[in-house]
Design a protein around this nucleic acid. Structure first.
Lengths: 261, 261
DNA sequence: CGGTCCATTGATCTGCCTCAATTAACGTGG
DNA sequence: CCACGTTAATTGAGGCAGATCAATGGACCG
């Protein structure tokens, strides 16, 4: 990873000081693990000792049902944590699989805890990532009951916005290194039906997808078809609040931080 | 509320000191609001000033879709927070409606923040509630793609276990003050189909439901039919960890706390 | 005692699933 | 660099779970 995408992601929430950035970069560079495509990063039931942070590649949260089918409940991209709260909930209630070759920083939870205690704006930024994950999940619940066309379109919008926030979208185009089977598991429909739905989306001119590269010629049009509104992703949520960050810092007992307006 | 159900809920996670209990009880008693059935507790887009904690009654998180249909994404019962993190994310990305007459404590977020800072085990317990909410949401994503029979059975199991953890289940029986339309919105199926599904569940002897009172004669049987495993609800998660709570307290810089084994 | 909301049931329709097969892409060793 | 095996994408045909439309009975309430 040329540049630290966690830094970039967190800055999507609010300003970080130079120190914050340095500390994050040092921490995430310390201990990096590599995972092969289709290998498990964390198994269901496992009790991880460290916090995994995706630095490169795509991963997914999933559960395997009793009938052997798998349901993907979230896609993880660079800057996403696998299990931020190992100290509160030890055991995984789902698995995490690398969909592509992945690199992940292995963070010591104690160190991260210490760090967050000293840097309230970092604490808030970490909180923010958790709450956004939850908001995305709520949207997936909604999506799961909508018609396939809308649901798939919505997923494309979500991925576009999330990847854009970490700088992985160029001219409305981004890498989507997922198989149709994986997309199907994430939308809760069959591979066959997903394929037909993609065809519909292509034929309606909303997306261009070939060789795992997705191009959205007109994002507004796709968003309209999908009923997508990125408000729930809370990009720039913290920036809008610059004014009261000092108050918040005081409130949670943290050190002060110069905040650009 | 005869006894404070938040206390009871949090004790489902781990031990609270006498002080913790007192502080919570005082705080939740201070400022209580009442909501009529079918009234909005928090509207989508609203920026709440206070943290709402359900003390009595049932509420639901929901989103209204562009076609006017509503999707319920969570049921809130006594002890549940509506929006614990008003300081991190100001604006609601969904609405919260009282399904029955409700009472809710209105907590000052600043005070709660202060309190949590002084009481690390309370902080951890609050974290726990957030993480369990997320785990439930993941399960709802899975549920939304399963057949109606299984999905409804699973919901019944979830509600049974959650209500049991706050002492609202007696002899396998509890009040379920929801209309079939509301249950349908929560499972993502039609009212008509939900009705038929309930009929199926009744006829297979797994549930007895009449006059908004649900009786589960054989929970294990229902759980088996639903593919339900309550591990994800993390009841007694903290208790199992009693041994290392001191370590954790030290880790997050908190005061020490006597822990029963 | 009529109005309103809720539960229940029937009949019909359809989006998506299942089963099945063909074609395209990809990787790997000869 | 091509042949071949494997995995991924695509298309067809038929079936079913659940949606839609419609109507009736029951419960609660002012």
């Amino acid at each position: 990873m040329e540049q630290n995408l966690l830094v970039r992601k967190l800055e999507g929430y609010g300003p970080l000081s130079v120190n914050d950035r340095m500390v994050i970069e040092k921490m995430t560079a310390a201990n990096v693990a590599t995972f092969r495509a289709k290998s498990n990063i964390l198994a269901d039931g496992e009790c991880p000792e460290q916090i995994h942070l995706i630095l490169d590649g795509w991963a997914a949260r999933y559960k395997t049902l009793s009938n052997g089918k798998r349901r993907i409940m979230a896609f993880l991209i660079p800057g996403d944590f696998c299990h931020l709260h190992v100290t509160v909930l030890k055991q995984m209630d789902h698995g995490i699989i690398a969909l592509t070759p992945c690199k992940a920083a292995m963070l010591d939870s104690r160190k991260l805890s210490d760090l967050a205690n000293k840097r309230p704006n970092l604490t808030r930024a970490l909180w923010w990532t958790t709450l956004v994950d939850e908001a995305v999940l709520r949207q997936w619940v909604v999506n799961a009951t909508r018609p396939a066309f809308t649901a798939v379109a919505h997923l494309m919008c979500e991925l576009h916005q999330r990847l854009k926030s970490i700088g992985l979208v160029k001219d409305g185009k981004f890498e989507l290194p997922l198989t149709q089977a994986e997309l199907a598991e994430a939308t809760g429909i069959t591979t066959v039906h997903l394929n037909r739905t993609l065809k519909d989306l292509r034929e309606s001119g909303l997306i261009e997808l070939r060789a795992h590269s997705l191009f959205i010629p007109n994002f507004a049009a796709l968003a309209k078809a999908a009923g997508f509104n990125d408000r729930y992703l809370r990009l720039r949520e913290g920036k809008k609040r610059g004014d009261d960050i000092r108050l918040v810092n005081a409130l949670i007992g943290g050190d002060s931080l110069a905040v650009p307006n």
